[in-house]
Write a protein that binds this DNA or RNA. Structure first.
Lengths: 353, 353
DNA sequence: CTGAAAGCGCTTACAG
DNA sequence: CTGAAAGCGCTTACAG
């Protein structure tokens, strides 16, 4: 491999010192360089095709702060199991990563993606690469999260519900989103609304969404009943199963499914049971995945701006790199209802029964 | 930020020189270190939680070769437009990236993802980060590809058809895949088989797939007719449109769609036209996206092992880093037919007409 | 306004 | 078997 062009080559070409080259390229306000010298250096840079060596820059700036050393931000995406591949098939991660990368790039940063191996913790990777910050997506065991605290670099958690809030957070207000969905159904005249979700823990996304569902019912003076809560796993199959169970209960006229994939399964399940969507059963989902638009009927759902999420996360990192004493931030990305064809009005509830 | 533990700290703790620390950690066969010393160093490393500084390593190894300097491999994913976000929503890229990253990781490499900005070409990024190799996914303008040649580092192109083959290549045999799909339909008794695809260029994926379609027809002595070729864009919508056109031609009993998304649209289109799938019309797709399994009926399609693709690409890079004089490689990932419910037999073609 | 020099944290001939 | 020393390519006080 041909030796790379260094700042010394540029200095020689321009007839100046490497210090001057550095001053020109980093235009420090502390140093003023004459226009002529600046021009000479820039010409030499162009002529030789000089690109600074980031490794050298990282090394030399390791003593200072408020700058970012490596201009590298790590992104941690959930893995099926530690040391294995990512659970990346979910298009959500692709969209998120895309906006994370874009926001990094226009700010002069790059993105390192990496899972962890049995032999190497992410903390080691962060040290080894002199990461300027880390974005952690999804839920992880507390032990792992605690490790990161030692790192003393900006860290943003995305979509992570935890009891202790040590790092910055970016997420959606799941409770509010569930409220929106449920309330939408109520405003369409529905009263007996089933709730279908993955497993509901004491905290976490589904817990929040269940709370939002209850908020909406309560807001309209409708009694909450555990009978209407169906919880399994986040899958198409479970959507079918839940729908078949729900079909047994003739009072139920609507369903809020906490994930589109469940909702789409439910559509299938209801159809199997001979119910027409939306005439006999209204459904609202959550996520607005690609499939939501293609479903038959197309699915009314709660949409989050994934792009904004990634942008917010990376902006938080960068802001925090620049001002290390910044207080912890909690950012909530707005949610909106996307109206499609899976919900119908019930005008005369009593008569229709 | 607390000063990091350096090899000097380790050396001091172990009562040896930094050279010895380096020898122990990199266990060079050229240097033999006594077991006692090795033990002392390793103890110190553990005690202090020492992690080598990659920037320093990259910098110092910049004079040697056959090693990889930065242990960093760049991955270029298609962007909507230069300087913008990735076209990442396609789950394909997520799967690919996942296996690329995994393969890198278990080999001691990391993955840098980055698009390009107007102000900064990827060549600059590669130099700046001392990238050890690059994986380029998809098609790019020749001018851009030519830029990369200067870089003198291993480069693998994934799914890229080009007239000049300068870099390593990883892809699928699209022609063979199309042959498999078409032949599958022929073996189910179909003779009038329509071909639906995105725009067909003089070279590229769709061109190859059209060739494979023709191969299969020819292999069974069936005449090729341009009347049966429908080409628009790779979208659900176009699938609907094409299906509606095809419904006009009562001779056609089967369709090979070169993308599942088109095939799923076609299912919808045929249903609109009152045709039953697979009784009145058989369909085979290509890709095996998530949707293929969920479609009604589920879609028979050609599947590629995306994971293998990423693995092969990264392995090629790493092999080439270790042996820089390696000849150009061309790797084709196997394709298989996934049989589902969208194809039926035609036993008595003549009678059925 | 510009340059000489030190130093970031490593690795590797070379000497012993 | 181990260490002193040079050097990778930068940046930044400091001196002038």
């Amino acid at each position: 491999m041909a030796r790379r062009v260094s700042s010394r080559d540029v200095a020689r070409e321009a007839g100046v010192s490497t210090a001057t080259v550095s001053y020109v390229l980093n235009n420090k306000e502390s140093q003023t360089i004459s226009p002529e010298t600046t021009e000479k250096v820039l010409d030499a840079v162009r002529k030789l095709g000089y690109v600074p060596n980031q490794a050298a820059q990282t090394l030399v700036t390791s003593r200072q702060q408020n700058k970012g050393l490596s201009k590298l931000v790590g992104v941690i995406i959930p893995q099926t199991e530690p040391g294995k591949k990512f659970v990346f098939s979910n298009p959500f991660y692709g969209d998120l990563l895309s906006s994370v990368e874009y926001t990094a790039r226009i700010n002069g940063y790059h993105v390192l993606i990496s899972g962890t191996t049995a032999e190497q913790s992410y903390v080691e990777i962060a040290k080894n690469r002199s990461l300027d910050g880390i974005i952690i997506v999804g839920m992880y065991p507390s032990s792992q999260i605690n490790e990161y605290k030692k790192l003393q670099i900006p860290i943003v958690m995305v979509d992570c519900y935890r009891s202790d809030h040590f790092f910055h957070n970016v997420g959606v207000n799941d409770r509010h989103g569930a409220y929106l969905a449920t309330n939408y159904l109520i405003e369409h005249g529905h009263k007996n609304i089933a709730f279908i979700s993955g497993s509901v823990q004491d905290y976490g996304v589904n817990h929040e969404r269940l709370m939002g569902y209850r908020d909406a019912l309560e807001g309209k003076g409708i009694d909450y009943s555990e009978q209407l809560v169906f919880s399994g796993d986040v899958s198409y199959i479970y959507g079918i199963t839940a729908a078949e169970q729900i079909s047994q209960n003739k009072d139920i006229t609507a369903v809020f499914a906490t994930a589109d994939i469940i909702a789409v399964g439910a559509i299938k399940g209801f159809r199997k049971s001979g119910l027409n969507i939306p005439k006999d059963m209204s459904i609202v989902g959550f996520d607005d995945i690609h499939l939501a638009r293609l479903a038959e009927p197309s699915l009314t759902t709660v949409r989050q701006d994934i792009s904004k999420k990634g942008e917010a996360a990376m902006e938080l990192i960068i802001t925090n790199i620049l001002s290390p004493v910044m207080p912890r931030q909690d950012i909530s990305i707005p949610l909106t209802i996307v109206e499609r064809d899976s919900v119908s009005y019930i005008t005369n509830t009593d008569l229709s029964l």
